[in-house]
């Protein structure tokens, strides 16, 4: 009887074994993904690879994470404006310059941006709305995101490389695996220590030389404040059906022209750049009554100084100041630097 009870107590080994196996498999898959072995390449070689890389047709899943120290945006997870905080998953199909589909996956919703030739559609399942824009057939795809955050690694890398100048230290990191593919890492760090940005890390595919991941670290932070990268990627040409969009019956179908014409006053509010490199500050005139109830109203805090009073958003990577008399200052710097510019 004693051995019987003992044998039966041994049964606990089964559920415990299941837990052990699951955690072992999870742990091992993380360990195994850390050992790529690519021939060495210098930082400048990598930069050139990037510049010469032709973006072949591809499809895949992109995960974007923002940990900017901002509160989550109110609203559904599938809305484009929610992307400034939290984790978001996008599906991408890229068939060439004029055939792109991006889908932002929310829990029970989805927003799609579909470019096919001269048609650009923006679909929102939460708003049950399809918006159509006409684009000249030869123009580059433009995703009119309200926050203008780069959504594909290529877009993000282009934006950063455009900003590259003598203000930046460029170096290589170790080799990493992104979306199961071995990749080089290129590290860009601002020389100016006043910038909130600590470094920008680009993972560049070892074979195709396209950016697979972009991470932006704030100063003294071990984990990225902003990250966009492929979770899964395939270089097979995606089928034509992904780029076909016909607005479903019974939804609002809006031609997306009017909101540009709606604000004729916008033209005179040309933004200016003060300073250079990583610590440059963007200044602009804004209509406070129009902007304040929006993003700033929900994220900003009240601030005042010799420059007057206003609202300020302070995140890990950038700060934005809007004064009550309608001036906007933004940059990858601490709010103090913005106050300094504002009081001039």
């Amino acid at each position: 009887m004693g051995s019987m009870t003992k044998n039966k107590a041994l049964r606990w080994a089964v559920p415990i074994g299941v837990v052990a196996v699951v955690s072992a498999v999870a742990g091992f898959s993380q360990l195994a993904s850390a050992q790529p072995d690519l021939p060495k390449r210098s930082a400048s070689q990598l930069l050139m690879d990037l510049e010469q890389a032709r973006l072949d047709p591809l499809s895949g899943t992109i995960v974007q994470r923002a940990d900017l120290g901002l509160p989550p945006m109110p609203g559904a997870s599938s809305e484009l404006s929610s992307m400034i905080s939290g984790t978001h998953t996008l599906r991408i199909w890229y068939g060439g310059q004029d055939k792109v589909r991006l889908a932002l996956l929310g829990t029970l919703g989805e927003s799609d941006v579909i470019r096919n030739g001269k048609d650009l559609w923006i679909w929102s399942s939460q708003q049950n709305k399809a918006t159509h824009y006409d684009v000249p057939a030869d123009s580059k795809p433009s995703f009119t995101d309200p926050k203008e955050l780069p959504k594909t690694p290529q877009e993000a890398a282009d934006a950063i490389l455009g900003a590259l100048d003598p203000t930046t230290v460029v170096s290589t990191g170790g080799q990493v695996k992104v979306a199961g593919r071995p990749a080089y890492e290129l590290i860009l760090a601002p020389r100016d220590r006043a910038s909130l940005v600590g470094s920008v890390r680009l993972a560049i595919d070892g074979d195709k030389h396209v950016p697979l991941r972009v991470q932006v670290f704030s100063k003294n932070a071990a984990s990225p404040a902003f990250e966009v990268g492929f979770q899964q990627i395939s270089f097979d040409k995606p089928g034509e059906e992904h780029f076909q969009f016909k607005p479903p019956a019974g939804v609002q179908n809006v031609p997306g022209k009017e909101d540009k014409e709606e604000e004729p006053g916008r033209r005179e509010l040309e933004p200016k750049i003060v300073g250079t490199g990583w610590t440059s500050v963007l200044t602009a005139k804004v209509d406070v009554k129009k902007e304040a109830p929006g993003l700033l109203g929900s994220l900003g805090t009240q601030a005042s100084g010799s420059w007057g009073t206003g609202r300020v958003i302070s995140s890990k990577l950038f700060s934005v100041l809007i004064t009550d008399d309608g001036r906007l200052f933004a940059g990858a710097v601490a709010p103090e630097k913005l106050y300094e510019v504002a009081s001039k």
Binding site: T5, K8, A9, R11, W12, V14, P15, V18, V19, V22
Partner: peptide, 17 residues
């Protein structure tokens, strides 16, 4: 699937003893 496996076997182990 994993939760089902863990807890059905745990129920089985517990019930046997």
């Amino acid at each position: 699937g994993i939760y089902t496996l863990i807890f059905t076997t745990a129920a089985w182990a517990r019930f046997a003893t």
